[in-house]
Computed example of a mutant assay.
Amino acid sequence: MSILKNTFYTVLILISAFQVYGQQNSATLPDFSEPKQIEGYKLVWNDEFNRTSKPDSNFWRHEVGFKRNHELQWYQPENAICKNGVLTITALREKVKNTKYEANSTDWRLNRKEGNYTSSSINTRGLKSWKYGRFEVRARIDSTKGSWPAIWTLGDKGPWPANGEIDIMEFYIKNQKQSILANAAHLGTHREAKWNSKVISLSYFLAKDPKWLEKFHVWRMDWDEKAIKIYLDDELLNDIDITNTKNPDGFNPFHQEHYFLLNLAIGGENGGDPTLSKFPITYEVDYVRVYQKN
């Protein structure tokens, strides 16, 4: 009996070990399962990136050139590719001519003759937008210095920041620490961007799981007429009251439709100096899913 009992417990231990290994291993791989059903919600749009090509042009547009925050990268479509169930945005250290170059311009986007880095930024502007719902993005980020990946939305109407910005995820250096951010911004009284920000040091997540950066994680936004709640792997990061987030003209940008943006910036005002960093830097997105209440 003792031999049988010992064998039984050994089998249980092995099963448990394989289950743990399977869970850990699956976290590093794309999720090819069907989007889950959520009680009270309906899946209204999703992109699983299960194609071998550029992102679907029915859903996504590309930004081209230098765009914002004095970032170093030149955005171009070539750096975004779908393969093996994942959208991979790759940042490269490479020379690229600024096709919009104007020698006498005072605009930094135009007076740079060339760039030293390339990357991609895609968005659903004019193609897909939503007002309220549950938004889920499964992604894996790269912590190399200079890396600034983001999952965010902008309102359809109005110039920034009057149109409203929601950062479901940003990763960059804040207070001299690599950090995960969950933010929202609208137009303040003095025509500035008024932010509601939550900053969590990357070290907080690494303390819980030293292999955190090797894995995909699920960023989620639950958005209704009262609040924007941003989660990471079901942990609430920021709870933003939007009942009175009005611009000076009375318009509330979080009560309008927003569109998605996915991008990997390099350097600039927050990304850090990538001069000594090893390239390529990658940002992988497994899926984007939008649910709305029935």
Rank of each mutant, 00 (worst) to 15 (best):
G158M: 04
F216R: 07
T153W: 09
V11L: 14
Y9F: 15
E192G: 05
Q24R: 06
E94C: 06
N183E: 05
W148D: 07
G85I: 03
S26I: 01
L264M: 13
D249I: 10
L187K: 12
T144G: 05
G268V: 08
D222Y: 07
K83V: 01
K95M: 03
D56S: 13
A139N: 04
I173P: 03
G133Q: 11
T245Y: 01
F260V: 09
Q19S: 11
I173E: 07
T153F: 15
K208L: 12
G85M: 06
Y291P: 10
G267P: 03
N123L: 12
L29A: 06
I3F: 03
W219C: 01
M169C: 11
N238L: 05
I38F: 08
Q76L: 15
I180K: 02
P55M: 10
M1F: 00
W108E: 03
N104I: 09
T28K: 15
N79Y: 10
G188N: 04
L276V: 00
S179P: 06
D233K: 07
K208H: 06
L206C: 02
S105W: 10
W148F: 12
N163S: 15
K36Q: 14
I81M: 10
K131G: 10
Y204D: 08
K246L: 11
A103K: 13
N84H: 07
H70M: 11
W195I: 03
N196G: 01
E214N: 14
N163G: 05
R138F: 00
N50W: 09
Q178L: 06
V20P: 00
S277C: 01
W223K: 07
F8N: 07
Q256Y: 09
K100A: 14
F205E: 05
L264R: 05
K67T: 14
Q23I: 09
G271E: 05
T28G: 01
H62T: 08
K278G: 00
L4P: 01
I141A: 05
R51S: 15
I228V: 15
L261E: 07
P210E: 05
I173L: 10
D167I: 10
S53T: 13
K194R: 04
I122Y: 12
Q37S: 15
T10E: 00
N116P: 02
S2R: 06
C82Q: 09
F254W: 11
K226R: 12
Q24T: 03
G65W: 11
N252Q: 05
V64Q: 13
R109N: 05
N247R: 01
F135I: 15
E94T: 14
G115A: 02
R289L: 08
E34T: 15
N104C: 04
L237S: 03
K113P: 00
Y287K: 02
E39Y: 01
P30R: 01
E214H: 10
